[in-house]
Design a protein around this nucleic acid. Structure first.
Lengths: 338, 338
DNA sequence: TTGTAAGCGTTATCAA
DNA sequence: TTGATAACGCTTACAA
């Protein structure tokens, strides 16, 4: 089924069908209706490849996600969902591309093969090859996250530095003097994962400002690791009374470690973090946390990308979200441990 | 950058470049290398739209997911991740399409617009329009899930009926006589959601076989709903000593309701379910459950789809997974409640 | 208001 | 072993 067949049956030229479809040229009401009837009868829809070839655009955006092997966090999942949703609202399709590891080819296809009009890139490192490659290619892109030179790219990001700093200040206000930061995995941080570094910077700064004693620990992204990480922290640093964290997936394990050590939250020990609201609310007790506005950030990323596609020369724009900390059930006055 | 430019610089015809690229015709080693050099120098990659137009296939598969608004469960997320992963391994791209609700157009574009070579459909209802439309369109598709007439389509699915039945038998073996099934949301079940109906069927069957007393309850897909659902169950049915469930997302709330009622798991109350392993293992206590093999099912779905694309006339194939129940920490001997 | 025809970048047929 | 050329299905200048 193609446009020629529709034209034949409606007794008009192919171009007339095209114009009736796109509205880029007036078509008399009568022929428009005749064409419409045929289109509906045959359930015709223009061939996307032909249209893309002719127009030079695909009406598709690429979403580059971390490889599936390492499970997506609640927050990452939130971004994927809202990006797909926002794109669909703008009649854009979304091509998913796992990057990293063995999926190099997938990324190359998407970027170089003109399969998409633009790209949204997740999980950006401070130094990131993919950003370099996208820049070279000239393909419009927007980061969810940013490199260490964030001026010359468009991005939305979570202000982990400020947020973790606020967590520490909040804990210090409650009298806590010995606080640990539970970061993401050591590999991720070593690989230059932005949120890990920025959280650490914010932690260090706040600890210095308040003249506290701070401990930094990396922790793999799963509950088991959270459990053993906190077990170790409690053993090695008996003076600790609070934790600040950006590691969503390890949190349930951290809760468990505290429970097993006989520490009640928030009576004996406090926790504050940065997490997806959905996750924070559903923990027991609910986590005091800065709730990352994934829906807004994802939607804004799509919006910024659409703008860049429309006008690739426009100046880069940035959105750094620092949502307020929502007080829930996990922070309370400091109480020295035995 | 196009194939003509490569041909010009390498001093050969466009077709020769094409053949050097696809290997569908022998090309002398010398010219092949000359072409290869130019390609690498310019980092050329064939235009996907032109290729799709000419070849009549897109090297892309569609993945139709439930709309983002209703959060994806751990299991659904697992499917998405493994499908993307398996597809990338076969050098296929994945086009994501949220279906249902307001995203009708996205589905239509993907199906009718020849944007993909085949489709993987998630969250299938017993009667499902999308299956009907895909059948009409002639586009190869594979379901993760199945309709009430599953013979004439290709699918992979979880055998909820058998699994819930096994859960009930396991609980009965431990002496439980009064068991509740916590199903997915009432809307989902009313809309003919397969797993909900099949779980109910398995539950009813096993309850009859063992001459037990069974209570069926629907529960929305979040922790809060799990909490209030179990609160209500405990109040209205003081005789209950165990729960079987397929509602992953409500489980933490169910745990909380039991704790608040002063019931220890598994000493006072047992729970068994069907869930993603990752989730089951990370609960506290870890959930006794049939672990849905998302990785295998997702990979098999892609495999089956690739086969159907290659040979659309081949007979339909099915894969019904009934993984064994993994005994973890949530089921124990029945102990009558006060 | 409508029709004609060129061309987007490939692949594949037919010649050489 | 290679080259010229006709499609694939669409959009859009240009003509009528």
């Amino acid at each position: 089924m193609n446009i020629g067949e529709i034209a034949r049956r409606a007794g008009v030229a192919r171009s007339t069908v095209s114009y009736a479809l796109t509205g880029k040229r007036p078509v008399s009401e009568e022929t428009r209706q005749r064409i419409q009837a045929v289109i509906e009868e045959l359930n015709y829809r223009p061939n996307a490849a032909a249209r893309a070839l002719k127009e030079g655009r695909t009406r598709t955006i690429g979403l580059v996600i971390p490889p599936a092997s390492q499970r997506l966090t609640d927050m990452q999942l939130g971004f994927v969902a809202t990006v797909v949703d926002a794109a669909a609202r703008a009649d854009l399709d979304v091509l998913l591309s796992p990057s990293g590891g063995e999926h190099e080819r997938s990324f190359e296809r998407v970027v170089t093969g003109r399969r998409v009009d633009g790209v949204i890139l997740m999980e950006i490192r401070l130094e990131d090859d993919r950003v370099t490659r996208l820049r070279q290619s000239g393909l419009p892109f927007v980061g969810i996250g940013r490199t260490s030179h964030p001026e010359d790219m468009t991005w939305v990001d979570v202000d982990y530095e400020t947020l973790i700093s606020q967590c520490v200040h909040h804990l210090a206000d409650l009298g806590h003097r010995d606080i640990a930061l539970v970061n993401r995995s050591a590999e991720l941080v070593a690989a230059g994962y932005g949120p890990g570094h920025r959280a650490q910077a914010g932690f260090t700064r706040a600890v210095a400002q308040r003249d506290l004693h701070g401990v930094h620990a990396c922790c793999a992204d799963d509950a088991q690791a959270g459990l053993s990480c906190v077990e170790r922290l409690l053993a090695e640093h008996p003076e600790l009374t609070a934790i600040a964290t950006i590691n969503e997936t390890a949190i349930t394990g951290m809760y468990r470690a505290l429970a097993q050590a006989g520490l009640a939250v928030p009576k004996d020990f406090s926790i504050a973090g940065v997490a997806a609201r959905h996750l924070a609310e559903n923990l027991d007790p609910p986590l005091t946390s800065a709730d990352v506005p994934t829906i807004e950030l994802g939607a804004r990323a799509v919006e910024l990308l659409i703008q860049r596609i429309a006008d690739p020369g426009s100046p880069h724009r940035h959105l750094l979200a620092a949502p307020p900390i929502s007080l829930r059930g996990t922070t309370g006055p400091a109480r020295p441990r035995a």
